[in-house]
Design a protein around this nucleic acid. Sequence first.
DNA 1: CCAGACGTTGTT
DNA 2: GTCTGG
DNA 3: CCAGACGTTGTT
DNA 4: GTCTGG
Length: 220
Amino acid sequence: MCGRFTFIANPDEVMQEFDLSEPLDFPIRYNIAPTQDVFVVIHDGEQNRAGTMKWGLVPSWSKDPAIGSKMINARVETADQKPSFKRLMERRRCLIVADSFYEWKKGKDGKQPMRISLEGRKLFAFAGLWDRWKQGDEERVTCTILTKEANEFMSSIHNRMPVILPKDAEEAWLARDIKKASDMKDFILQLPDDDMTAYEISSHVNNPRYDDEHCIASLI
DNA sequence: CCAGACGTTGTT
DNA sequence: GTCTGG
DNA sequence: CCAGACGTTGTT
DNA sequence: GTCTGG
């Protein structure tokens, strides 16, 4: 699964990497936690657009937006069937931009936090779904990160992993036309994985209040 | 038909 | 133990 | 994901 | 909104 990640990037590089035309403004984040703002790219039919959304999906029909803190991930294997995700697989796909993510590896002495990044790409995007929620004056735009079964590399750390799109799959995932949910599921599941790398970090990262360089410092 | 749920993860 | 908030 | 709260009544 | 269960 994926419950914490980083976004430590240079705005110019992000603009170039995701083909954005508007100038960007976002803070450097070492410890992004559910319910917080994440940096998201969508396609408006003409061009890519970037902005922030809250992490934790609140479906448009929800009565209680608190559901969002539970809906931080969506299993791609079943997302084409689930009422909360099916419509979003068809027409509300997004990129959630990151440069590494955290997983907690279970050992006999508790959980060891790890930082995982890609070998060959400084920046990447999770495959995400998003939705809009409104109730009275309150409005919320939220998103969730798709997950799949861990690959060989990740399985030593955790049994699930976030879906990271290969660079050449991002455009197809973002495309605004309405697709069959099951086709998008199949598309995601046949994608190859980028090579990954991981190292142990301090449990400093455990506390979502800490958002500093120490989060990514190697234990060794 | 209407009512009621709608999610993931991990752990047991 | 379980839920909410970050 | 982890951390931290978890309750009501009445009074200020 | 959409699906499942009764």
